[in-house]
Design a protein around this nucleic acid. Structure first.
Length: 462
RNA sequence: GGUACUCUGGCAGAACGGUUAUGCGUGAGCCUGCAAAGCUUAUACAAGGGGGUUCGACUCCCUCGGGUACCUCCA
């Protein structure tokens, strides 16, 4: 599998004949997650589901940064403890992402639960004289890591001149960043240097190495983490271990709103809860997979509506497959096999989900065509269904199952309607159709039969 | 200002040095008691501007321009 690597700026080969270790930078838990977070996590979720569909073992670590100024600020404002804030939003995080059908990570380490590891990590950096203790905390000395800037392609002297932060006189160099900050405001921990809390970045170095080792396969996150977060992680980690850190750096493009980056600080976010309520998980997933992961995608109601139309076709396809019983059949196994191979090939070529989706829609279209031509028989449907469900599973799309009782009731109503139709009592027949519609059951009248499909309830549908 | 990414048909969005992307939308038709859904078919100067390399460029090179992101809050 080929993946574009931010560090080398080249496609690198991911050897999928062995176990794959992935570390994804998760969220700082001080507020509701938005659709931008969802995109990044959905991309990695599909990557993982694809790998696992190929029987590749994946160890997937995603952290929660649960100690941070913003958490503390929020806690102060709401007059509760920082932990209450982070707990609340971790809970909320899982609610959102379970609903989005995201597979749980192997582990979700939290910064606050790894303070000991972090302190040890910093101690080693001090021993190596790469970090130093100052009046305000412990700092990483950027000048001790000559390759600093290699990920974000920045030159150290340019960074210094363009630096927009106020110069902290206690630091040896304005670029040096905090590993440990002295602080009297809770939460704080004792350390060999004084009471305080860890800086941002250090938790990801300490935890990724702890769980995945010094040199793991993929380190990912949003593009906005390249600098300074990931740049600093590399500096700390490689100084610490003397080894190469992650093999491949994979960065997901931003979600914009009206061409502007969606971010909490700009206040132009669409929360996952909002979008879930209006469009549901499947359409969100289709939307997030509709462009190449490295590029920007723009959120708009129109584009969600477009994905809604796509989803309807997928649903139709599914229900056609379920009800397939035509006698005439075409031999389609070769065609389906080819589509499946194209789907896989697209994903293995820098994880091109959009191209993969176009193969998927070929399958959907082909099935719906056969159904329209009354050529979708049981044999075909078995072949197609296998591939259809394989792809659905990789993409994390989900058509809700129905109970047998429900199905029975629907079949009854349909056969009643058929009687009325045969007797040309269309008013009665339409009444039944109307009734089913209220149950979110849509009828498709074919020449030889009427089939039903359960439509997902979409609030924003017109 | 620096760095990176980006500019493809009404919209979204891919691949590829020479071939239909695909989807949405729109028009027409088929199916239907009517619908809906679906199918068929049609539709689009496609390539930010200008140069160059090449037998041939959307694809490579140069140049000019637009957009976005990052330059210590950020997925």
């Amino acid at each position: 599998m080929q993946l574009q690597d931010t560090l080398s700026n080249k496609e690198q080969t991911l050897d999928i004949s062995k176990k794959i270790k992935i570390y994804l930078c998760g969220v700082t838990v001080y507020d509701e997650s938005h659709i931008g977070h969802a995109r990044t996590i959905i991309i990695f979720d599909v990557l993982r589901k694809y790998l696992e569909s190929k029987k590749v073992e994946v160890e997937f670590i995603q952290n929660f940064t649960d100690v941070d100024d913003k958490i503390i600020n929020r806690a102060t404002t709401e007059n509760v403890s920082a932990q209450e804030i982070s707990d609340k939003y971790i809970k909320s995080y899982f609610k959102d992402f379970d609903e989005l059908n995201i597979m749980r990570a192997t582990n979700y380490p939290k910064a606050t639960e790894h303070i000991g590891d972090i302190i040890k990590f910093i101690e080693k950096l001090i021993d190596k004289e790469i970090a130093y203790v100052s009046k305000n905390g412990v700092y990483f000395s950027v000048s001790k890591f000559p390759q600093y800037g290699k990920l974000s392609k920045k030159k150290i002297d340019e960074l210094q001149s363009g630096s927009r932060i106020q110069i902290d006189e206690t630091k040896k160099d304005p670029l040096d960043f905090a590993l440990w900050k002295y602080s009297g405001i809770n939460p704080t921990w004792e350390s060999p240097w004084g009471k305080g809390r860890p800086g941002w970045h250090i938790e990801c170095s300490a935890m990724s190495i702890k769980y995945l080792g010094e040199n793991f396969d993929i380190h990912g996150g949003g593009r906005d983490l390249i600098f300074p977060h990931h740049e600093n992680e590399i500096a700390q980690s490689e100084s610490h271990t003397g080894n190469q850190f992650a093999k491949i750096w994979m960065h997901v493009g931003m979600v914009t709103l009206g061409g502007e980056k969606m971010s909490k600080s700009l206040g132009n976010t669409k929360s996952i809860k909002y979008v879930l309520e209006n469009w549901g998980p499947n359409i969100i997933r289709l939307f997030c997979l509709s462009g190449h992961y490295s590029k920007v995608i723009d959120y708009s109601e129109e584009i969600l509506k477009e994905n809604f139309s796509k989803w309807r076709q997928v649903e139709t396809c599914y229900f056609e497959l379920i009800h397939a019983n035509n006698k005439n059949q075409e031999n389609i196994s070769e065609k389906i096999k080819k589509i499946g191979m194209k789907f896989d090939k697209s994903l293995e070529n820098d994880f091109n989900t959009h191209l993969a989706l176009s193969s998927f829609f070929e399958l959907v279209k082909e099935t719906n065509r056969l159904a329209a031509e009354e050529k979708l028989g049981e044999e075909n449907s078995v072949i197609i269904k296998k591939e259809f469900q394989r792809i659905l599973k990789i993409l994390g799309l989900n058509i809700p199952e129905m109970s047998i009782d429900e199905k029975q009731k629907i079949d009854e109503l349909i056969s009643n309607r058929e009687k009325f139709r045969d007797e040309k009592q269309f008013v009665q027949a339409d009444k039944i159709r109307e009734k089913l519609n209220e149950m979110n059951i849509e009828l498709i009248d074919h020449k030889e039969k009427t089939i039903w499909m359960k439509k997902e309830k979409i609030k924003s549908e017109k």
